Amino acid sequence: MHVTPTERGGVLPAGGLRPAGYWAEQLRSPVRYQDAVVTAAARGRAVLVEVGPGSGLIGSARQIPEARQTPAVALQPRRGDLLSGLGALWASGVELDWAAVRAGTPAVRAPLPARPFAAERHWLDTPAARDAPAPVAPVPVASAPVADPAADDEDRTVRQIAEIWRSLLGVPTVGADSDFFTLGGESLLFIRMIAQVQRRFGVPVRIAELADAPTPRAIAAHVIGG
């Protein structure tokens, strides 16, 4: 994305060159990140991709209303996270070079057997009305399990924390064990999230104790434990 003082968020044409003095001007001027994201989101079937060790740019992009419906994927350097990111790109309609993805691995394409359907007839030839109805044995009624008030309190707290996360991160789904940073959060959003949790439940939350396990379940346990 190429940004100039007269054309905020403009697109650099394929093969185009940046004008002389572009980088020097960029160092002295504010970064027009929002303008660039809005331009990208308006280009039809766009997918925002962040390549690097973090996901702070994706988290910032999700705060921009025009880009909340645009798929955003963070490609992390760890192999498991990288493959998950490639899967998210494929699910968003991006064509991938699978030969390059599988390069150096023994993975091969294997045909799977089709589901067999046996050609057997299962229709009843005798009308059911001719047969006397068989006596129906009484079905034992199992006693209802006793509700656990502590579990209900934890589930309710997890749902409220997940609601705060959806609002901050702009994501549609947050699970009890979802990782805040994997969903696109970054350090400043994490601090804002903790502040909202403290206001919602009226209890102090120590950031240092949750940085290694930033999930709604872990935060809920912290809140319930006081």
Rank of each mutant, 00 (worst) to 15 (best):
A114H: 01
A147S: 09
I194D: 02
I207Y: 05
G9P: 02
Y22Q: 06
Q160L: 15
L27K: 11
T215Y: 03
P127S: 15
P5G: 02
G10W: 04
S92T: 10
R8D: 01
R43S: 14
V223L: 05
Q76F: 12
V205L: 09
A151H: 13
A88M: 14
E50W: 10
A61M: 04
V139S: 11
R62L: 06
Y22E: 14
G225E: 06
P135R: 13
E163M: 15
T105H: 06
Q69S: 15
G21R: 00
A132Q: 09
G184T: 01
D153W: 01
A46N: 10
W23R: 06
A211M: 08
P106G: 04
P149K: 06
P53K: 13
A134F: 13
Q196M: 11
E25V: 04
L12P: 00
V31S: 12
R121H: 09
V94F: 12
T70K: 04
D179E: 01
D177E: 12
I161A: 06
V49S: 14
G85K: 07
P113N: 11
D179M: 01
G175F: 00
L75D: 08
V101S: 08
S92K: 02
P138E: 15
D212M: 08
V94T: 06
G56S: 14
P53F: 05
P111W: 06
A213H: 03
T4H: 06
L86I: 15
I161K: 01
D131V: 14
L48A: 08
P214G: 03
A118P: 15
A61V: 01
D125H: 09
V51E: 05
A134Y: 12
Q160E: 15
D153R: 12
V38W: 02
G87V: 07
M1N: 05
Q26L: 11
A114S: 08
G93D: 13
P135L: 13
R115T: 09
V223Q: 03
V3P: 04
A132L: 05
G87K: 00
A208Q: 10
R217H: 07
W165V: 02
F117I: 12
V136H: 13
W90K: 07
G16I: 02
G10M: 03
P13V: 00
G175L: 03
A195Q: 09
I194G: 07
V101D: 11
V38Q: 10
P216S: 07
S84V: 15
Y33M: 06
I224E: 09
P71C: 11
L96C: 09
